[in-house]
């Protein structure tokens, strides 16, 4: 349809649903757009004063006149409800429904990078042996095909955790801990950005999401345990 790809690669379990939702809304919006442009431009041609020197007197207050507007509005309302019906399952899946966590991590925004905290050897977060990676350009390694549940926090100002390939975005609000999840289906290295203005170096706030196979991920985690001294 286009000469280029509209969306970046989708690597998550729910990303395709969001892309499909776009095309659904796009379909309704295009139909509405084509009809409206026709209704706008055709009378300009048909009822130009050279062709139609005398206008008709239509107030539109009669029901028979307003019928046409009503029909169009009802059609629009129906497509609205179709959109809401279609989207709600995905919304519930991403934001509402409980998921079983295969890996629980914490992500914290600060000026100007993301801090990733992995559970220590005990497998539990917020214990003394957690491993924290606080570095610009650092990578968030996650295993493929696993539910990653993360606690999102912020140390200073409002940030927004945006994984464009996962189609996930969530603001990090200082003083709050928000739980979100994702599940990557494809190995590779992807961008993590901050999409809420957060100060002078907002444009430098970029980390990487690295999706590993389970084996590579285990190796990575072990190397973390040996190289990094556990931090609070």
């Amino acid at each position: 349809m286009f000469l280029f790809r509209v969306f970046p690669d989708n690597i998550s379990t729910y990303g395709q649903e969001i892309d499909d939702l776009f095309w659904l809304i796009f379909l309704f919006a295009s139909i509405a757009f084509v009809i409206s442009v026709f209704l706008l431009l055709y009378p300009l041609y048909k009822y130009h004063h050279k062709k139609a020197p005398k206008a008709q007197y239509i107030t539109g207050e009669k029901k028979t006149h307003f019928k046409w507007v009503t029909i169009a509005v009802v059609l629009l309302a129906l497509s609205d409800f179709a959109i809401m019906f279609a989207e709600h399952g995905t919304w519930a899946k991403i934001e509402q429904d409980p998921v079983t966590a295969d890996l629980q991590i914490a992500v914290t925004g600060r000026q100007w990078n993301w801090i990733f905290t992995y559970p220590g050897k005990d497998g539990k977060l917020y214990t003394a042996d957690d491993v924290m990676i606080d570095d610009q350009n650092s990578e968030l390694h996650v295993p493929v095909n696993k539910n990653i549940v993360f606690d999102l926090k912020s140390r200073d100002v409002v940030h927004s955790f945006f994984l464009k390939n996962v189609r996930l975005k969530q603001d990090a609000i200082p003083g709050r801990t928000l739980k979100r999840w994702f599940n990557c289906t494809k190995e590779g290295k992807y961008e993590i950005v901050c999409s809420e203005i957060c100060g002078v170096l907002h444009s430098q706030m970029r980390n990487w999401l690295v999706v590993d196979s389970q084996e590579n991920f285990d190796n990575y985690l072990n190397s973390l345990y040996t190289n990094n001294k556990p931090k609070q």
């Binding site: 409206s36 209704l39 706008l40 009378p43 300009l44 009822y47 130009h48 004063h49 139609a52 020197p53 005398k54 206008a55 008709q56 239509i58 539109g60 006149h65 046409w68 507007v69 169009a72 509005v73 629009l76």
Partner: peptide, 17 residues
């Protein structure tokens, strides 16, 4: 949508300058 369609309906049957 109702408002905008009414505007388009205003054009319909007019003598447009």
């Amino acid at each position: 949508a109702g408002i905008f369609l009414s505007y388009m309906a205003t054009l319909w049957g007019g003598s447009i300058r």
